[in-house]
Computed example of a mutant assay.
Amino acid sequence: MKKWLSLGIIALGLVTLAACGAKKVESGADKDTVKVGLDDTFVPMGFKDDAGKIVGFDVDLANAVFKLTDTKVDFQPIDWSLKETELANGTIDMIWNGYTVNDERKEKVTFSDTYMKNIQVLVTKKSSKIDSIEQMKGKILGAQEGSSGYSVFNDQPKVLKDEVKDQDATLYGSFSEGFLDLENGRIDGLLVDKVYAEYYLKKAGKLDEYNLIKTPYAQEEFAVGVRKDDQALADKINKGIKTLKENGEYEKIVTKWFGADAVND
């Protein structure tokens, strides 16, 4: 009798632990304050300004969307290579930082509607005389770990992977680290989002010193990533962006960060 009683207690304990482990994370749509995960070096989408304040296009857009429902936004810098893990465990409620939609990520997150287009470019120093992808043969390439650029680099090896030195890229925690090595000649090219490259080099006053070489990788689209089971939050974001586009606020934010010419791109 004692044996069966003990087994029953153990079984009950296991069921209780399983139930606790399966506890559902509260939907971001129901929260008074939501947490946005971002790479705080990704200009101009989300980054720290000279005063240490997190600013950027995505920061302004997120604030504007949640202001519509009086929801506060807490921007949480994260390790970009662990972004989906941070989302799944509830540390953040969404990934909103120039986050590219692709099939691999669709298996891990629910995406909002897309709100901006982007392409991958190969950035080289003009002084290197490398002004085409073909000239990267045997050269050292850099990329950000966990980036969409590194993903397509591996998925379409004939474009660059099979040609560059060691058939792989030197990986960085942020694009700014990659640009530092590119400037100092430790790598020969950097695979990076065009939106980042143009803004970064313009602000540094060095756009004329570098080549931004278009790659054959497909055009990308940015969207917000939420937990797989949080369609309610995705719907809330979609509704908010739609409202901002209708009332003209979205256009104002685009103009602020990219100029008037970018509105209809």
Results as ranks from 00 to 15, higher is better:
K214Q: 15
R227L: 07
K126Y: 00
S148M: 08
K165V: 01
V34M: 03
I95R: 04
G149A: 13
N89Y: 07
D30I: 13
T100R: 05
V195L: 06
L17D: 00
D230V: 01
G146N: 12
Q167C: 00
C20A: 10
E220G: 14
K165S: 08
E220R: 09
F42Q: 11
V123R: 01
V109H: 14
M136A: 05
L87H: 08
L17R: 02
V36E: 12
L61N: 11
D58P: 11
K23F: 07
S81L: 11
D32G: 07
D40M: 02
G46A: 13
D74P: 10
P157M: 09
Y200M: 03
Y250N: 11
G248K: 03
G205D: 05
A260P: 01
G259R: 11
K256W: 02
D229S: 07
S112W: 15
I119R: 14
D39C: 08
L182C: 06
E145A: 11
M94G: 05
G225P: 12
G56M: 04
D261H: 03
L141M: 10
T170K: 13
Q167M: 14
K137N: 14
I9T: 12
A218V: 01
G90V: 03
I237N: 12
I237H: 08
S148V: 15
N102F: 12
W257F: 00
K214M: 13
N89I: 10
D60Q: 04
N247T: 03
N63A: 02
A262T: 10
G240C: 05
Q167G: 04
K194F: 00
E198I: 04
G185K: 08
N63Q: 08
I95H: 07
V164F: 05
S127A: 06
N211C: 07
D188Q: 11
K108I: 11
Y210N: 05
L244D: 06
V121S: 01
I9R: 04
D39M: 10
T124P: 07
K206T: 15
A19Q: 10
A22H: 09
A62D: 13
